[in-house]
Amino acid sequence: MMSIGSMPAMSPPTSPRDQIVSKLDEQVEAGEITSEDQDAMLDALDTIHAERMEAGAPDFSAGPPSKEEMQANFESMLADQVESGTLDQEQADQLAEMFESGELGGRAEGGPPPPPGGAQQGSDPLEELMATLLETLQSDSGYDGSGEQSSSSVASMLADFKV
């Protein structure tokens, strides 16, 4: 049986913004963009995020938007940032390319849709819990050697789980 103490350690998920900062840091270090470009791109993305939050949740009653619709919508928001002077066209093109490739949470060509609640890469605590739960259920029949039902650590695993 697996106890809570033996569950694999779960690192906190990285936020989408932290992932973007990391990618832009890599580009600065590689000399692909300047730190000023990075600052402008992050300012623009923060502004876009704030505007999206003010607008409220999108209406997906007719289904989620296509990759092309998402890309066009993002490019429109970037054009607004160019018009306001937050970004120059080259910076907007760089962000649009990153979005199209999936580096900014957009869907890469042929890739799976992002998970509900946002596109997060890396380890998902719920997925880890479900994998551990499945493993426990597969290895633990629930009955002891005498044929009596035995207690299982599955209930305690679920009761103590926090996201």
Rank of each mutant, 00 (worst) to 15 (best):
P58S: 13
Q71P: 03
D88P: 05
L95C: 02
M70H: 06
D88A: 07
A57Q: 15
N73C: 07
S66L: 06
M70D: 09
F74V: 05
M41S: 01
G56S: 12
D88Y: 07
F74I: 07
P65T: 13
F99M: 08
Q71K: 13
L95H: 01
D39E: 12
D46Y: 06
E75D: 14
E69I: 08
L45S: 02
G56P: 10
T47K: 14
A57W: 13
V82R: 07
D37F: 05
G102M: 11
D93L: 01
M53W: 05
M77L: 15
S66N: 12
S101T: 13
G56M: 10
A44E: 00
H49N: 10
F99T: 01
K67C: 00
E90H: 09
M41P: 01
N73L: 11
M53E: 14
F60N: 13
G102E: 10
M41I: 06
D88R: 08
T86A: 12
A50H: 08
A40V: 00
A55E: 13
E75Q: 12
S66K: 11
D80I: 02
E54G: 11
S84P: 01
A55T: 09
L42K: 04
R52M: 13
G102P: 06
I48S: 03
F74Y: 12
A57H: 14
A79E: 15
Q94K: 13
E75C: 02
F60T: 12
A96C: 10
R52P: 00
A79P: 04
S66V: 08
E68P: 07
M77I: 04
L95S: 00
Q91W: 02
E83F: 04
Q94Y: 04
E54N: 14
N73F: 11
F74L: 07
S76D: 11
Q94A: 11
F74N: 02
D39W: 03
L87S: 00
G63D: 06
A40E: 03
E51D: 13
E75Y: 02
E75S: 08
T86H: 03
A57P: 15
M53V: 15
Q89T: 14
P65E: 11
M41R: 04
L78T: 01
S101I: 07
L95T: 00
P64Q: 15
G85D: 06
L95P: 04
M53D: 14
D80H: 05
E54L: 15
E51K: 14
F99R: 02
D88H: 10
L95M: 05
G56Y: 08
E68S: 12
A44Y: 00
S61T: 15
G63F: 09
Q71M: 10
L87H: 02
Q89S: 14
D37S: 12
M98H: 05
P64K: 15
R52V: 09
A72T: 06
S66M: 09
A96M: 06
A79W: 01
E75M: 04
G102K: 03
E68C: 02
A96R: 06
D59F: 10
P65R: 12
D88K: 12
K67P: 04
A40H: 11
M41D: 01
M41N: 03
D37R: 08
S101Y: 04
G85Y: 07
E75I: 01
D80N: 12
P64L: 14
